[in-house]
Every structure is written in structure tokens, then in C-alpha cells.
Amino acid sequence: MQASSPASNLPLVRRLEAVGFRAWPAATVIYDGSWQLRLSGGHPSKRLNCVVPLDPSDVRDMDIRLEKARKRFQSYGRPLLLRQTPLSPPMLIERLPEAGWERFETVKVMTADLAQVTLPETIDHLPMHDIGRFVDANLSVNEEDAGLKPALAEVLSTIKPPTGLFVVEEPAHKPAAVALCVQDNDLAGIMEFAVATSHRREGLGSKILASALRWARISGARSAWLQVVDNNHPALALYRKFGFSEAYEYHYWREVQA
């Protein structure tokens, strides 16, 4: 499931975008034409709070629609963000700098053929089903505010495809690494993958990733996908070691504050 040229493989981009939406569902989804407005009042994740244009030809009334989106985001207490994928209209993206927007983050979407990935015959770490425990571990590993627990639990509870919640604990039962695997038919998405700062370079990332991918393959997934910020070089090296390669990139845009 590799894409040598995202521009020439828009069906793959559309499919990965669709499974990505289902794997990380926003509380509110509104369509303005083919523009998807994703909003989640409780969780600040950019993926849950952004405008995502999904048709390269949908450019009618761009400025008016951006203004409408801005007001809707303001009603949720969120800044207006736009996520640019290969499905975004080039005319809209060209317009953004002129309208006072800036691009501020690039994320790589990567895929791997699970039939070609060498994985252990057994799963070292079995998935759990306790969302509350996973959320606590996730917030601890990522050193995030415990106040996000209800919002993160709500996101995880609304994921409809089968999920595997993976946690690696140190001997004192403190979480050291986490990963979420969402299996959507023959595609498995790796989400919320993180290793605690104090446990990096110990091989825990490889262990938990191998467990998640092994579980996905046993469960019937044929390909895996994930998203990673383009400057996270240790994660990129790990993913490439497991056979992941880039399918396409997306970018976040925001309005420049005066």
C-alpha cells in the first residue's frame, strides 16, 4: 500500500483520510460542501479541531466559507486551523498566505505491508480493554495534564472499529510506553504511540510497536498506517525499521495573529 506520488494516487489518500477520521473521531463533524469541519470542545488535539477540504475542485466562495468556519470555531473556543492534504484545492492553499495565514506543522502519513514486516511469533504485550487505565498511562507517559482524562476517554470511547490498547509498565507498575491500534477492516492504524522520556533508548518502542502490529496482523489487518510529525527523527527511524514508508504529507495552517 505505498504511494510513490500522492498527487497521482488520490484514492489512497482518500482511503487513509477516511480511516484516520474513524480512528480519531471528532465530537462534532459538519460539512460545508466537501470541506469537513471537525470540532471537539473537550480535547485540544489539532486533528479534532480543524477544517479539512476533501475535494481539489471545491473552491467556491472560499473567503466567505473561511469566515463562517472562523465564527463556528470561535463558538467552541477554538482557533481556526486548516489541515492541507493532497485533497485540498490548490487555489485555496495559494490564497491562504495572501489572507494572512501561515503553515506551521508538517505530518507524514506512513504505511507498511504487514505481510512484509518481520514480527515475533508471540505477542509480548497483550492489549487491555480498560480505557480509564489506558488514559491514565497515556497522560503519564506524555506528561500531559490529568485534567484531559475525561476528554481523552470520550474520544477513545467513540472509536467504532476494534481497538487494541497497549501499555508497557516498569517493575514498579509505572507506565513506560503506550500505543493504540485501531483495526478498520484490512487497515490498522497506530495512534497515541509514545515512550516515557526516562525510558527512551531502551527498546520499549520496538517492543510495544511489534506487539500492536502483531495483534493487528492476527486480527486480519493486511496494512498498517500511522502519522508522525516530520521532525520527530527518532520515531521516523523506528518506523522505517519496521518497513513503514511515506504515503503523503499533510500540513497545518493557522491565521497569523496581529
Rank of each mutant, 00 (worst) to 15 (best):
M1T: 04
S5D: 08
S5K: 14
P6A: 14
L10T: 04
L12P: 02
L16P: 00
L16F: 00
E17T: 12
A18H: 10
F21R: 13
A26D: 01
T28M: 08
V29I: 15
G33Q: 09
R38V: 03
L39R: 02
G41L: 07
S45V: 14
L48T: 03
V52G: 01
P56F: 13
V59Q: 05
A69V: 02
R70E: 01
K71Y: 05
Q74L: 12
L80E: 00
L81D: 00
Q84G: 10
P86W: 06
S88W: 06
R95W: 06
E98M: 09
A99E: 08
R103L: 04
F104M: 09
V109Y: 02
L119Q: 04
P120M: 05
E121A: 12
T122V: 12
T122L: 04
H125T: 02
D130S: 11
S140P: 08
N142Y: 05
N142D: 05
A151P: 00
V155L: 04
S157W: 14
K160M: 14
T163L: 03
V168G: 04
P171S: 07
A176N: 01
A179Y: 01
D186F: 05
A196T: 01
H199W: 08
R200N: 02
R201T: 09
I208Y: 01
A210G: 07
S219G: 05
Q227H: 10
N232M: 09
H233C: 15
A235D: 03
K241Y: 12
F242M: 05
F244L: 04
Y250C: 06
H251M: 09
V256G: 08
